[in-house]
Amino acid sequence: MTRSPNLRRYLDHPFWQALGLLVLAYLVIVYGVPLLPGSSLVPSSVVLQYMVTVLVGVLIYVSDNDERWALFKQPLVAMLVEQRLRLVRILVLAVVTLLVGWVTFGQVRTTVAAPPNLRSIHPAPPAEVTFRGKTMTLTGLENPLRQQPESLAAFTAYGKEIYYQNCLPCHGDHLDGLGHFAAGFNPLPANFQDNGTIAQLTESFVFWRVAKGGPGLPREGTPWNSAMPRWEDFLTERQIWAVILFLYDQTGWKPRTWEKAEGGAK
């Protein structure tokens, strides 16, 4: 393919190169990046950051060499002075002015936004809880079912059954918080595959969260928003410990232990 000499002139010119690069960068960031597996739409503030970075890079490049810099300035100066480009000049001035006006208006206009949801994800648990009338000390408490290693598989299977009949619509069959009811809730159901939930917690903490649910959260946990039920009303103590076994078994996380308080290992 032979390029027309006209097009060539533009392609070799630093000004049009720079402009082309900026447009290309914009297209890649806005339309290209979301296509990559595992990525989503780039928020507009981040787009702006990226574009400023690209612009600075481009300016450094064109000003790096005197000849290139002079060449780069040519179309700009021409736009400012030449009689035949009068219309373009007026248009650029008008567009820039309107753009500045619009951006400023966006800044000063007050719209009501949803108040920020300042929420502590893992609030401090109480030292002890009352479970169906029985007082349980959470500090130092271990999952009693782990004391019977020979039955662990059976308990885990039992936990799986309980999970599928109760937790599944919200926390999902992949335990990633994306069950078929999850879209209806805000905050979203907890994602157990994530390294920030059960991987960070002792089993006694998980027991407390399961047993007391959203309404049992302290104020900093925004109990009024959480859809997590109070499983104390549905499940026995043994059933809750079994479902906890299943959570760790299915995701492969290890519960944080009281002695070492390390956890977070897969």
Partner: peptide
């Protein structure tokens, strides 16, 4: 609310014209 956008626009337009006049 419209005051500051208008001021911003006037300033921008003024600066723009200045640049054009100087260049010319």
């Amino acid at each position: 609310t419209f005051i500051s956008p208008v001021i911003a626009m006037v300033v921008t337009l003024g600066l723009g014209m200045l640049v054009v006049v100087r260049a010319q």
